[in-house]
């Protein structure tokens, strides 16, 4: 393995150099994985119960939801130093950075509220009442629409970012966990963990366009629970984490058909691509590791031990 790692280092192209930052929910740390050596290079302490993680557009700042510290921490990714905390509302779980690189939309899981924070003035701009246990957060590429999904109310709440008010609420299957815009913003995808489906909406009129269902030989349907998902840059393919079924589904984003399933670690949550999109890193909560998937061959190629209950993942490019 050492030899392999060395070999990978020597042949690595500068273009692909980067890191995957993984939040360890039960260790209050971040594990930083080098995408070339596939080793953990740093472990950085955070606030309590880190979950959502995202970088600013120039990667000079990393935002971390420290759920049990009731704050969003802002860290300098080169030093690992927490620079300051943002007001976030109670129990921030997931968030999304608006394309203006300035406003964070934060799901406050215990409060049935979405909080909008201005990261420059470090103030709360708005709080929007949503359903019980808000979790999934997304913002459209044009920045006009933000989405919060609520796990117990089973809805996607559509927020007009100009007024910070709800303009639609659409029902999905049980326990929606994650939302992403797709097809250049024309579609909204929402995963339902207990319902076992991903619902695809037309953004223009919030109507349902289709629904993705999953089936894995030898795995009880109850345990196939879609949570996090990511699209390839051409948005032709989606990788969907299926929780306690320990598989990631590869979905054709045009036909909404599943093309294959990849066996990963136990209770897979979220994922992030390497900078060149040749590798996909999944967080596996129960087994406490990260699975590296080779995107071209759709095969798992390595498991990397991280901290306890890895949850969120985000990519940071580094100069090679």
């Amino acid at each position: 393995m050492l030899k392999l790692a060395l070999l990978l280092t020597t042949v690595a192209l500068p273009l692909s150099a980067g890191e995957i930052w993984v939040t360890n929910e039960k260790d209050d740390t971040i594990s930083v994985i080098d995408v070339d050596t596939l080793e953990v290079t740093r472990t950085i302490p955070t606030g309590e119960r880190p979950r959502g993680i995202t970088f600013s557009q120039d990667f000079s700042r990393v935002y971390i939801c420290a759920s049990d510290s009731d704050t969003v921490q802002v860290m300098d990714p080169t030093t690992g130093e927490v620079l300051y905390d943002l007001p976030s509302g109670e129990d921030p779980e997931q968030f999304v950075l608006h394309p203006d690189d300035r406003h964070l939309y934060i799901a406050n899981e215990d409060d049935a509220v979405t909080t909008v924070v201005d990261t420059q003035t470090r103030t709360v701009v708005a709080q929007i009442n949503v359903g019980i246990e808000p979790e999934g957060m997304a913002v459209s590429p044009d920045g006009k629409v933000a989405i919060t999904t609520s796990e117990t109310t089973n809805m996607a709440h559509w927020i007009d970012t100009a007024t910070q008010k709800l303009f639609a609420n659409t029902l999905v299957d049980s326990r929606p966990r994650h939302a992403e815009f797709a097809a250049g913003g024309q579609e909204l995808w929402v995963s339902s963990e207990i319902g076992g489906t991903v619902t695809v909406f037309n953004t223009a009129d919030q109507t349902e366009k289709g629904k993705i269902r999953f089936e894995i030989n030898g795995v009880n349907a109850d345990l196939i629970q879609p949570v996090g998902f990511e699209f390839t840059p051409d948005e032709a393919t989606a990788f969907v984490a299926l929780g306690p079924s320990n598989h990631v589904a590869v979905v054709n984003a045009k036909t909404l058909q599943v093309e294959s399933y990849i066996l990963v670690g136990r209770r897979v949550w979220h994922m992030a691509f390497s900078p060149d999109h040749t590798k996909l890193f999944t967080t596996n909560g129960v087994s406490g590791d990260v699975t590296v998937i080779d995107v071209a061959s759709r095969q798992a190629i390595k498991s990397i031990k991280v901290g306890r209950f890895p949850w969120g993942a985000a990519m940071r490019p580094t100069k090679g």
Partner: peptide, 10 residues
């Protein structure tokens, strides 16, 4: 019908 009862299955 499916109810989420916080026990990991519908």
């Amino acid at each position: 019908f499916q109810l989420d009862g916080f026990k990991g299955r519908a």
